[in-house]
Design a protein around this nucleic acid. Structure first.
Length: 728
DNA sequence: GACCTGCTGCGGTCTG
């Protein structure tokens, strides 16, 4: 500690705690963050890899500040996960006990007596979720000022998990509303995984004043990376007459066998990209354990499994006696403590480079040990009439492109530009609940004026919004002009589901022998007698209770993995460009095995045969494929621009699929027109497009605002038009 | 052709 200057800035009892823990030195992020946070007069982002001591980087100086000041005595920590609050409570409470500072966990599973005790003396450290904070503002409007009077800091954990979502917009609004009640700003400390563009994260943490946010980025570079990508070819299915039962694919069993022999005996994470595949692989892997008569060591983890089954998997990873591998979705991407793993297996191309990077952060955390990535690419055997995606081996090319971008240290910037006007509706209703009513001008200034969370909505648009919410009976106006809840608004605000800013599917609970296994979306209707794979085991449906939304199952052999609901992901333009560079290059990455190499050379041969370096319109018989090699948002913009010219067009993979109409030349002319004109206004762009609603309150928005909200997230017009300009 | 997150107040019944 002798070399650390920051250490001596900390309060004496905190110094003693650090000595007694036996820490040899402070991490670089802590060293840098301590003097910045300590003064308590500015916003700070601490960005570092998992387990680099971010929590301490915020709390050691924040607690010092609180202990040394006679004024404010409260730190509000906001987390996206209840599990993280429970983890942090254990860690912080040990330190704070010695400092005689109380720590208060507050979320849906915490008893109301704990909450009441905090409100009686609101001091110390409050650990809370955005939803619980929403409920607090909504239901205890009159005591918000007293409860938060002493707040010295907001600490936002896993900041990157909030950016780009309805929930992130809600978080910005909640912090702003507390500051508005207090009549002062409260320093915000954001803890985040390293993000490509820290400026975007800073603008998210403090809208309008991102430039003033201090940035601390850990210099500790990651360990070396070891990569191996294997190709697997799915043979063509030969179908008999009238044989329309879905064939089980062949390759998963081969991949499972490979994983079994490579991973057994160590701790690992396997990411097969969907809950359905998690079920498939967990079952295949544990069947291999059973066949070889060895203890089961593969555990499932995804969001539809019950909390009990998930914590079994987490406990299996944490304990040191038996090796354990989790087969999981991105539930294990966030900061829940699961210890270090030897290897990360990725089956199929990951959703984004950022997520691949986050997943790899779980591997090679011991000194000198490299992070290890084993990729698996599945492609269909060519023959007959292969699809363009098969011909170009797009999954293999995308996986390779993403790994090469990862090695170049590039990853997608955070999506900080979404308008999330759905959340504006929720926040207006909540603010009215908090204050018993509000004049329209006050609402506009609070939410939409400069540097506010919903800046960019004009006064005219806001008046139109209020009128529309009146029509939907969400709002009404009293004789003095004050806005109040309408009949429907009153009902919705007074239900507990109001506090979450995001929408959730209705679900059936799956119960076996009185124990809850998890849940399935109602869209996936199961019938009595059906066999399913769930929680890594096979079951038979015994009873379906439509009223209570419960499905009762018993153990049984056989069964297919169920379908879960979900929407499409978004591929960034940079990824598609790198895919194209790979297809035009001659060199082959050394980490590809023989089959993956063959896939890549087949893709290159077909790319060349179709002359895709020069040709951007492919006549595929029934339709024409426009090969833009742009990201999904730009392709969707181009599809809308074509729809406006009466083409039936839809974004599809690396381009846009257009139904045949006239000649290919007509389409070329249309693209030339698109490239030579300015972007049309949104009401013209979406004239042919219906159902733009995606977020929870989108149904309540007037059309112009709905179009604006949708475009801000899903449409990249400038890239699409620039592309059309360039091909002319 | 995806994934994830979260939730109050109150009235009823039971126990010591």
């Amino acid at each position: 500690m002798s070399e650390s200057s920051a250490f001596y800035l900390l309060e004496e009892r905190i110094q003693r705690f650090i000595w007694s823990e036996g820490w040899e030195s402070l991490r670089d992020a802590q060293e840098a963050a301590i003097p910045l946070v300590l003064k308590g007069d500015r916003d700070v982002i601490v960005a570092a890899a998992t387990a680099a001591g971010k929590t301490e980087a915020a709390f050691l100086p924040a607690l010092t500040h609180v202990l040394q000041s006679d004024g404010p005595r409260l730190i509000v920590y906001i987390s996206p996960l209840k599990a993280l609050i429970n983890d942090q409570f254990g860690r912080l409470d040990r330190l704070c006990e010695q400092l005689e500072i109380p720590v208060w966990p507050w979320h849906g599973d915490i008893s109301s007596s704990v909450k009441a005790r905090f409100l009686k003396k609101p001091e110390g450290v409050l650990l809370i979720t955005p939803e619980s904070l929403e409920a607090l503002l909504c239901n205890r409007g009159t005591s918000v000022g007293t409860a938060f009077k002493g707040v010295a800091f907001f600490v936002v954990d896993e900041l990157h998990a909030f950016i780009g979502s309805e929930r992130g917009k809600q978080l910005q609004s909640l912090m702003h509303r507390v500051e508005q009640v207090l009549g002062r700003t409260v320093p915000r400390i954001g803890l985040s995984a390293t993000l490509g563009d820290m400026g975007l994260a800073a603008g998210f943490l403090r809208p309008g004043r991102g430039a003033d946010v201090a940035l601390v980025t850990s210099a500790a570079s990651g360990n070396d990376l070891r990569v191996l990508v294997k190709g697997y070819e799915e043979p063509q299915v030969v179908r008999g007459e009238g044989d329309d039962a879905e064939q089980e694919p062949m390759t998963p069993a081969q991949i499972a066998a490979e994983l079994f022999s490579e991973l057994r005996g160590t701790n690992n994470l396997v990411f097969p990209n969907s809950r359905r595949e998690v079920e498939r692989y967990t079952h295949l892997l544990n069947k291999l354990c059973l066949d070889r008569q060895v203890p089961k060591e593969f555990w499932p983890h995804h969001g539809s499994l019950s909390a009990e089954i998930r914590s079994e998997t987490e406990a299996a990873l944490k304990q040191k006696e038996q090796p354990a591998t989790a087969v999981c979705t991105n539930t294990l991407e966030l900061g829940i403590d699961i210890g270090a793993v030897k290897c990360v297996a990725q089956i199929g191309s990951p959703p984004t480079v950022a997520s691949l990077r986050q997943r790899l952060g779980r591997s090679g955390r011991r000194k000198g040990e490299p992070a290890t990535l084993r990729g698996f690419c599945i492609e269909n055997a060519l023959g007959g009439k292969p699809s363009l995606a098969d011909e170009l081996r797009l999954d293999t090319v995308q996986m390779t492109a993403m790994i090469s971008l990862l090695i170049d240290r590039w990853f997608e910037p955070p999506m900080a530009h979404g308008a999330h006007l759905s959340t504006l509706v929720q926040q207006m209703l909540s603010f009215i609940a908090q204050n018993g009513g509000a004049p329209i001008g006050q609402l506009y200034d609070l939410f939409c004026a400069k540097s506010r969370p919903f800046e960019g909505v004009s006064k005219g648009e806001f008046v139109e919004l209020v009128r529309h919410l009146g029509q939907k009976e969400l709002l009404m106006q009293d004789s003095a002009g004050t806005l109040l809840h309408g009949r429907v608004g009153e009902k919705l605000v007074n239900h507990y589901t109001f506090y979450a800013a995001f929408a959730a599917d209705e679900e059936f609970r799956i119960v076996a022998g009185g124990k809850s296994l998890g849940s399935l979306p109602v869209s996936q209707m199961l019938s009595v007698g059906q066999r399913i794979l769930f929680a890594g085991r096979t079951w038979k449906v015994e009873e379906v209770d439509d009223e209570q939304k419960v499905i009762y199952v018993v153990r049984s052999g056989g069964g297919a993995p169920p379908l879960f609901s979900g929407g499409p992901g978004q591929v960034h333009t940079r990824v598609r460009q790198r895919m194209r560079e790979l297809l035009e290059s001659e060199s082959t990455p050394s980490y590809l095995d023989a089959v993956a190499r063959r896939f890549l050379s087949e893709a290159r041969a077909n790319y060349k045969a179709r002359d895709l370096k020069n040709v951007y319109l492919l006549d595929l018989g029934g339709h024409v494929q426009v090969m833009t090699w742009l990201g999904d948002a730009a392709n969707e913009a181009l599809a809308c621009l074509l729809q406006r010219l009466k083409f039936a067009a839809a974004a599809s993979g690396p381009g846009v699929e257009v139904a045949k109409k006239g000649t290919v030349e007509d389409l070329r002319d249309a693209l030339v027109d698109i490239g030579s004109e300015d972007a049309p206004p949104l009401e013209m762009l979406f004239a042919e497009t219906k159902s733009l609603g995606r977020e929870k309150w989108d149904w309540a928005l007037p059309d112009p605002l709905l179009r604006k909200a949708y475009a801000s997230l899903h449409i990249n017009l400038s890239e699409a038009i620039a592309w059309a300009k360039a091909i002319c």
